[in-house]
């Protein structure tokens, strides 16, 4: 045990071989496996990240589409509103015009009727006055009776004409 001999050299060789063996057969495969696993985990993580990003983009697109749709809808509604308002205005305008026309027509009608009614009445009244005037010229004695008669006639006419 206390001698140093050729076995020292053997041991040195043994140790060098040992080091190589351990490196090749123990450290290398284990480190390989661990780095492979890490790589696979990393790739899977990246994949998941990519899918997540894709989903995010899809979601964004969907949201944009929805916003577009909303806008379209609002536009259509606004358009319809506008059209309805114009239609309404038109209808109201039309109605107003027609109403005015009707009113004008009826006014004219009334005028006309009045003319029609008032014309003969005036005629009649004139005739009456002429009649009375001729009568009064004929008999001047009882004026009061004549007046009464005139008034009565006029009242009668009034009642009939008006």
């Amino acid at each position: 045990m206390l001698r140093l001999d050729i076995n020292l050299l053997f041991t040195v060789i043994n140790l060098v071989i040992w080091y190589i063996l351990i490196r090749i057969f123990l450290f290398k495969p284990i480190n390989n496996i661990i780095s492979k696993r890490e790589a696979s985990i990393k790739s899977r993580y990246d994949e998941a990240q990519a899918i997540k990003e894709e989903a995010q983009a899809e979601k964004e697109k969907c949201r944009a589409f929805q916003a577009n749709l909303e806008e379209e809808k609002a536009k259509i509604v606004a358009q319809a509103n506008e059209k309805a308002r114009i239609d309404y205005d038109n209808i109201v305008e039309d109605a107003r015009k027609r109403a005015k026309q009707i009113v004008d027509d009826s006014k004219r009608e009334a005028e006309f009727q009045k003319e029609n009614i008032v014309g003969p009445a005036e005629e009649e009244i004139r005739a009456l006055i002429m009649d009375i005037a001729s009568k009064s010229l004929a008999s001047t004695d009882n004026d009061s009776a004549l007046y009464d008669q005139f008034l009565e006639k006029a009242g009668e006419m009034n009642n009939a004409g008006l």
Partner: peptide
């Protein structure tokens, strides 16, 4: 326990 081995280790 053999000094050859420890000597070899120390030498390396």
């Amino acid at each position: 326990k053999d000094m050859n081995v420890t000597a070899a280790l120390a030498l390396m």
